[in-house]
């Protein structure tokens, strides 16, 4: 049964076949990604239910409550400082996480990419080892390191470097340490991929043309591995912004990030429209920052 003709005919009906072939993926995307998003967007403009859930009445209350709050007694309207400071803290911590992971990730990726080809696989394997354990467990492990009677403070007091334990746990610093640890591999791997393709002879060319070490880094290496820097930053920044477990465990109840705040609305807060509005807003913040970031980073390519 040889049917070479049909095989040759296939490209002609590619248009229809292409759609049919990608139908499973498309359906999955619509059902599993766009569908839930749509539900979230719709819930954000509905009225909140008595205990939880929503009532199917159109209402701007959810979005209103993102930015403003009403006094329970005299109904005066004021800016929701608490909400805004949570947003601001999330953005601040995410940017800091991105910068710190880049600071640690660049030398790490450089180190791996400059090893002999045989041992690179081993180093990359080490980078992925943390993924083998549940995020929650790893976060508790960090907690064990930084808590007042933890490894770090015991060590420092033992050697007389400090007299009182440093309060790290339940501060923004703790959240930052936790997120840097968790997201570091997401920075290292794309940086490694970019440095791996980098032609190291260009460094000699730079030195030969009177560029100092710093000038070679700024003028040759960083512009060429920029796709890796952009990818790594996006991979770290976006999940940082929506982080839930790390700020929940290491930040305690006080130092919430957007993720925890959203969870609060669907749980104790029993305000689903507000939660939905916050989620939608988070999505928009991510989208806008992505657009701005890619615009800016592709722009300074031209004046090299």
């Amino acid at each position: 049964m040889s049917r070479p003709e049909t095989g040759r005919k296939a490209p002609r009906s590619k248009g229809v076949d292409g759609w049919l072939l990608s139908a499973p993926a498309l359906i999955l995307l619509i059902v599993a990604a766009s569908g839930p998003l749509l539900i979230v967007a719709i819930y954000s403009v509905l009225e909140k239910g008595d205990y939880s859930g929503v009532r199917w009445i159109l209402s701007g209350e959810g979005w209103f409550r993102v930015l403003f709050e009403r006094d329970i007694f005299d109904q005066t309207i004021s800016l929701a400082d608490a909400n805004l400071s949570i947003f601001w803290r999330s953005i601040k911590l995410s940017i800091a996480t991105t910068i710190i992971t880049f600071g640690f990730g660049l030398p790490t990726a450089w180190f791996i990419a400059t090893r002999p080809a045989r041992s690179r696989a081993f180093w990359l394997f080490l980078i992925t080892v943390p993924f083998w354990t549940n995020l929650l467990i790893r976060t508790f492990a960090i907690m064990e390191v930084i808590r007042n009677q933890g490894i770090l403070n015991t060590f420092l007091t033992h050697f007389g470097l400090i007299s009182e334990p440093i309060q790290i746990l339940y501060t923004d610093t703790a959240v930052l340490i936790g997120m840097t640890y968790v997201y570091l591999p997401l920075m290292v791997l794309p940086l490694y991929a970019a440095i791996d393709r980098f032609d190291f002879r260009l460094i000699e060319a730079g030195y030969d043309l009177y560029a100092s070490r710093w000038q070679v880094l700024r003028g040759v290496i960083l512009p060429i591995i920029k796709p890796g820097i952009v990818a790594g930053s996006i991979l770290v920044f976006i999940p940082s912004l929506g982080a839930y477990v790390t700020p929940r465990v290491l930040g305690g109840g006080k130092n919430m990030m957007i993720g925890n705040f959203i969870e609060l609305q669907f749980g104790q807060g029993q305000n689903w429209p507000l939660g939905a509005a916050l989620s939608t807003l988070l999505l928009l913040v991510v989208l806008v920052s992505l657009i701005v970031y890619t615009r800016v980073s592709s722009k300074d390519n031209t004046n090299g």
Binding site: D199, R201, L202, A205, G206, L209, V220, G304
Partner: peptide
């Protein structure tokens, strides 16, 4: 200055920027 066997031109810079690199540095 060296002319490299592999040329080692900077791929992210134009011809003029490549040629001007040494003087700029």
């Amino acid at each position: 200055n060296t002319v490299f066997q592999s040329y080692a031109l900077f791929p992210h810079l134009t011809v003029a920027q490549n040629v001007g690199f040494g003087l700029k540095m």
